[in-house]
Design a protein around this nucleic acid. Structure first.
Lengths: 191, 191
DNA sequence: GTCTATACTAGGATAGAC
DNA sequence: GTCTATCCTAGTATAGAC
């Protein structure tokens, strides 16, 4: 199951680790911070993540992928009109990133020294995300050429909005974005 | 002058350091990497940047701000129609980020552990950038409410496109963006 | 202005007791 | 499964010769 009712301890830890990584980046996160965030001392962490920090980051990416699936992707592949799906998606985006206050772990990894280490995971995650959004746009009447471009543009905008919001210490731009997303994506769908 | 004909050694070093920081983030960049990139041994670097790594990062941000001024901002405040300015700007964006292959130091800082340390600089830099682009949009007939939002959206998109391009190992999306930017910004300017 | 040498800390990781 | 203790390296920074 994507989100089990009784999450394993490992998953619970991974979730806390994900929070630290989202806030500080891969190289910017130390074992000491992880220890503090999880309440486990260093030695104990290696019991759950034998390969150390890289292992933890991978687990963090996995649990967040599950949460993203639940909050954002699921609505895109559910029943409903394209507009309904995109509106549910936008709402999930808002929730997943806590109105812009939590960074995207993927984006953070790309810019914080994890790009080489996790290249294939990052590529796959973004590709998959673009593909699903693109599918809804095709369903809404976009051309096979237009749809993926438009989907990628939307995801780019989300990534950028998170950065700019954090820099400006003003999250209204991100919240504005999640409100506008469905309309922007469906606008002039046939050109 | 923004870009002196004979750049000081410190500026030359700062530029090389900026490249490393753009690629690896603040916490992801070590003195060893900086030493290799500049050709100076650690001890020598402290002669030019007494306060160490933080000093170097600040200097890197300054020289890149100058380069950004020259390549991107200058055209926005020069003579010409809004469209001409935005087209020159988009070309500068393409050049400044080397078609998407070089990250934005500002965005990188935000996500790689430099957000707290350089908060005020990051805020000022993004604010200034948004303001200048917004000015051109107002000149093009956008409302005082619409212009800054649209400008911020464009800058968000640039930031996000850099991340996604790097993750996908495909820079065509970024290049597409720089081509479309002027049209997107001027589209339906009066709503 | 650059070098060598060195100090010192923090970071990641391991072994083994409980 | 968590702890303590320890190892080792890499990290930042400093002092002082040249």
């Amino acid at each position: 199951m994507a989100t089990p009712a009784n999450p394993s301890l490992r998953d619970t830890l991974a979730h806390k680790i994900a929070d630290v990584l989202r806030a500080n980046g891969y190289e910017g996160t130390s074992m000491a911070q992880i220890s503090k965030a999880t309440g486990l001392l260093k030695g104990s962490l290696y019991h759950h993540f034998p390969k150390g920090k890289e292992d933890m980051a991978r687990a963090a990416m996995q649990v967040l992928a599950q949460e993203a699936e639940r909050l954002m992707i699921a609505s895109l592949v559910a029943e409903g009109t394209p507009r309904q799906k995109l509106e549910a998606w936008a709402k999930g985006v808002e929730e997943f990133y806590l109105g812009g206050e939590k960074n995207c772990l993927l984006g953070t990894m790309v810019l914080s020294g994890g790009a080489d280490r996790f290249q294939s995971e990052l590529k796959d995650a973004f590709s998959a995300w673009i593909t699903v959004v693109s599918g809804v746009l095709i369903e809404a009447g976009a051309s096979e050429q237009q749809a993926p471009r438009r989907a990628q543009a939307a995801i780019e905008r989300i990534q950028g909005a998170l950065i700019v919001a954090r820099a400006l210490e003003d999250f209204s731009g991100f919240q504005q974005l999640t409100q506008d997303l469905p309309n922007v994506l469906l606008e002039e769908i046939d050109d």
